[in-house]
Amino acid sequence: MSNHIQHLFIINRAGSLIYSWEARTETPEVEKTYEWPIDVHLEEVDQKAVVVFGEKDGIKLRYYVKSVNGETVSGTRLQLGAQQVNVLEYLQEEDHYPVTVKFAAPTVSTNEKIILSSMFHSLFTIAVQLSPCQKSSGVEVLETTQFKLFCLQSRTGVKFVVITSAASNIAADSLLSKMYELYTDFALKNPFYSIDMPIRAQKFDEAIKTLLERAEKNNGAVTF
């Protein structure tokens, strides 16, 4: 069945990520053989060769080059025998064509999750400042064409964030409250847990997984 819940984040008072969970999904990959000249425009973005123009045949913007002629690309470096070449320069030479290139959809790395958590922390605060009326909270719901983000901030400033697919009508409030409850039970009551540090407790992981399985079945409504 399709996963409605895509990401879970717990962010501490200072905006640091202290817990994250991600649904296991198959990363789309597309392989294609090109004649000179290649009709996809590639640029180096975040040390990867990324598609910036020319969506075609399932290859979309932000996809990056994963391998060339079966040889894995590391960042923008392509290993050819004992030699390393820049994959962008390699694809500019007519002598190398025809060439088979495999593209993969982007994923969210651990470092990116940390950056995104800090970013959300700032957005949350700015939303309070820019409120046109009194006593507004920060961002509680953020909707895009691809996903929905729900956020619950506790009295002590810890933020619980869940990201679902756009089509999902999951009862996020119930899910977030339950997450908060599990946080208090398995993190705060743990005598070895330092406040505001990343949560590394196996029982917490197991409890979260169980919660999410029940949430998927009951459309987010989780009650005992």
Binding site: A127, C133, K135, S136, V139, L142, E143, T144, Q146
Partner: peptide, 11 residues
């Protein structure tokens, strides 16, 4: 992808 909206408790 575009941002449709964000919502707080008050606006």
């Amino acid at each position: 992808q575009t941002v449709n909206y964000y919502k707080t408790s008050a606006y």
